[in-house]
Amino acid sequence: MEWLDTPAGRAPRISSEIGFNDRLGACKARWGIGRMSYMVPPGLYAIGRPTADAPVLVTANYKMSYDIMRHTLTGRDVWLLVLETYGINVWCAAGKGTFGTGELVRRVTATGLAQVVSHRRLILPILGAPGVAAHQVAKRCGFSISYAAIRAADLPEYLDNGMVTTPAMQQLTFTLYERLVLVPVELVMALKSAAIVAGAILLPVAALGGLTAGIAALFAYVGAVLTGVVIGPLLLPWLPGRSFSVKGAVTGLIWSGAFYLLAGGRAWGVPATLALFLALPAVSAFHTLNFTGCSTYTSRSGVKKEMRIALPAMGGALFVGAILLLVGKLL
């Protein structure tokens, strides 16, 4: 480790290169492996050879956030102030308040930033604003806050153009790729709970209708989960409706149709067919509704409203589906 001497002690000089281990670590975190302990120590870091008038950029101590920042700032001389957010990204930590006024003021004081730099300006990500009250920070430690951009990728342009935020830097996006990278960890988490439900489906169906029926039911269920977790989020802007559960139900209906054709549904009879077209969309709808947690445009009040209608509807569909299956068995 290289160090840079400052009036407030020495600061670690960090490389802006992203190596194999950083990429592997990011990939593992995306799949939920060691994700909750993927962090770096909070504090003040030097990128390049920053002087007393170099800009100070603030980020979270989730290692993926830190890596994106140092990589984006390649070839520059800047200070990076890393807050203790317990390994959580800026947006989620701001929502919880750990990327917040208190921690920012504490970290500015603990690092002796006022002695290290001659100016009094901190550059923050816009998505950190839900946790930080800029006027309070100014009052408590004398540093004024500039909310620069949403994406770290816009920082070079921001720094080069005299620290001016353009309208594009303030606009959130939710592109296919941005949705795709969120899918693996959602999938891992969903499959954990789905494994329990899958067992609860396989055993009774196999007991009542034989092993083949049990495996078919399991396949139908797992397909509905995957549809809700993967297909719903990926097709999000093109699916009908504003509600996530409606979008999920639509993909679930398509899966129901596909399964009907794959499994030779014409031999089933009316009750079993109806049960399939009720239960599978409900399962997909539930999982796509859950993706509201990953989206960057759904409001708490909206999700509440949607849940009040959608959860009873899903429960009802599953209940009626189960009754229909039993009735079909008895007829």
């Binding site: 504003r242 009040s301 909206g302 409203k305 949607e306």
Partner: peptide
């Protein structure tokens, strides 16, 4: 947000 709209008349702002 471009291309995305959530439920109407729910925000408490």
């Amino acid at each position: 947000m471009k291309g995305f709209r959530y439920l109407k008349d729910v925000a408490t702002l």
